[in-house]
Amino acid sequence: MIDDAWEPPPVLLAVDLVILTLRDAHLRVLLVKRGIDPYEGALALPGGFLSHAGEGIDTAARRELREETSLDANTLHLEQLGVYGTPGRDPRGRVISVAYLAIAPRLPEPVAGTDAADASWQPADHVLAGELNLAFDHRQIVADAVTRARAKLEHSALATAFCSQTFTIGDLQEVYEAVWGISLDPRNFYRKVQKADGFIVPAGTEQRTTVGRPARLFRAGPNAHLSPPIVRPVDP
């Protein structure tokens, strides 16, 4: 039986965006410095509320990215990461946030806008270690996003997108080490890469080095999914 006096609870819908890239051989996350309360002056993920009742969630995510960082969301592949709605996560009331993830190479410097006082690429490992305090529950969202990114490197050829058109196995290993946050044994990594069918193919040339033998060059292969996957080793 429905109580005639029942009213739906007030709930606000928001979007948060985790944009990851590699810069200076480190995995970095796009953060903004909040220019308004709550948490004015604190670092946070770009995002915000839907602008009106008729705005789609995907549309809101792309709009917020453009407004707060000036990055063109049309050049990024945004995918839904998760829904975050723990009571008390936002002091303004009951806020449900749909988080989005994008992982892309060679992203430009962001430019802050609207309610963001600044925007910058920050080391993801500093966020995970608690060295950077983020507003709301954004540290947890970043942690979930990094976990997703690490899994993507296990099962997809995403890592080659962060390399030049031709690259060495060492270049590829640096990408995996940056995203996974661990050091890898070169021989073991080489063996795993070679076993992944269609992951990389020889480029037919070599890269001269100052010492030792010239390094073989490769390019991205035809397969987008790795079989067998390159599984992340357990942290030492």
Rank of each mutant, 00 (worst) to 15 (best):
R63F: 13
E67F: 07
G56E: 10
T59G: 11
L81V: 10
P91T: 06
Q80P: 07
R62I: 13
A102M: 01
T59A: 15
D58N: 15
G82R: 01
P87T: 15
T75S: 11
R66N: 08
V98W: 03
G54L: 14
L71C: 02
D72L: 00
L76H: 05
G54T: 14
S70W: 08
L78F: 00
E64W: 15
I96W: 13
L107S: 07
A61F: 00
E109C: 00
G93T: 10
L107C: 08
E64A: 10
E79D: 01
R63T: 12
T75I: 00
T86R: 15
A99K: 02
A73P: 09
P91H: 14
E79H: 02
V83W: 01
G85E: 04
V98D: 01
R89V: 08
Q80C: 07
A61T: 03
V95L: 11
E67Q: 14
G88R: 10
E68V: 07
I96S: 13
T75Y: 09
G54H: 12
G88T: 03
E68W: 01
L76F: 12
R106T: 12
E109Q: 01
I96D: 13
L76Q: 04
P91R: 10
R62S: 13
T69E: 01
G93Q: 08
V95S: 09
T75L: 09
A53D: 14
T59I: 13
A102I: 00
E79A: 00
R66Y: 15
A73R: 04
V95M: 09
T59F: 12
R63I: 13
I103Y: 07
P108W: 06
E109K: 03
S97E: 11
D90C: 07
P91F: 14
Y100W: 14
I103L: 05
A53R: 15
L101E: 06
G88N: 11
E64H: 15
G88Y: 04
D72K: 00
R106S: 03
T86H: 10
G82Y: 02
R62W: 13
L71Q: 02
A104I: 00
R62T: 14
D72H: 06
H77W: 00
Q80L: 04
G56N: 14
Y84F: 10
S70D: 12
P105I: 02
D90P: 07
A53Y: 10
H77G: 06
Y100T: 06
G88K: 13
L65H: 12
A73L: 10
N74E: 02
G82N: 02
N74A: 05
G56V: 09
P87M: 10
A99D: 01
S97A: 11
G85D: 05
R92S: 08
T69R: 03
R66A: 10
